[in-house]
Amino acid sequence: MTIGAAAGLKLGKACRDAFGTALKDLGDEFPNLVTVDGDVGNSTRTEVFAKAFPSRGFNVGIAESNMVGVAGGLAAAGKIPVVSSFAVFLLANAYDQIRMSVAYPGMNVKLVGSHAGISIGEDGASQMGIEDVALACSMPGIVVVVPADATSTRLATRAMLEHVGPVYLRCGRIEVPDIYTADSEFKIGKANTVRDGKDVTIIANGLMVGISLDAAAALAAQGVNARVIDMHTIKPIDEAAIIKAATETGRIVVAEEHLMAGGLGSVVAGVVARTKPVPMEFVNLGDRYAESGDPHGLLQKYGLTAEAVVAAVEKVRSR
């Protein structure tokens, strides 16, 4: 079943496509914006910007650690480099370079990882970023954003450029349902309640927001009124939204296309444990690599479905 269909949403563009177009559209407004790529600009979609502003797009070849270092230098010299690759090659391959040339000196570098999650499909686990959020969050000072649809990706791209300091923006490869409209609000660090409810709260990000809205529709048919929060920013986390959800609904499920370790679930759990302990359940990849397969078959096999979210809600409500 198409993601978002049960919730009455229409399939829109993939986040990576929205990102590429947004960069191009913002090119004139941000004259210091430059892109640094590692031979995958046609995958991450920075090529859309680089084609429109050829002198401002750099492709250093298949050399991610060098790519990040170059971005650090560009930032130190006053540019706003957007450095991108597949999420896992960017965060995992160039981790120490991000740490030393971006995070530690607080450089104004924008890191964009495309092909996040298992929904990239057939290429298999070596290309799937399932630990990128944990890696990004592990570096002090980096803002970590995981938008849910094309419109919020566009808004997030602007917010990322306006923010002074390092940002990691995570984008998926496949088409996702449209959740927002052009006049929707997007503020780094401020969660969006995309569906209100009082019986339970589902906190999600990325592609799991649409899937959680599908779950909420199914739950509504059973008389369960679920709140769905799009926690697009993982760092800094919107503590107020979490405390409010815990207080008002008393139960929380966290859904994400990422490993359990170090993802949204563990961050939210940390806040809940410290502020307003309530029962929680988690929908994520657990502790395993996925495999090759079609995106929707993979989401099914690895339990990232509306049914899995519904089951987690039932479980958390039975506790």
């Binding site: 290429d123 298999g124 686990a125 290309q127 090759s292 993979l298």
Partner: peptide, 16 residues
Amino acid sequence: LRKLGSPFEGHPNMKR
């Protein structure tokens, strides 16, 4: 090749 469940994945997987 590349189908869900197949050990003939998109990139070599020595575990399978």
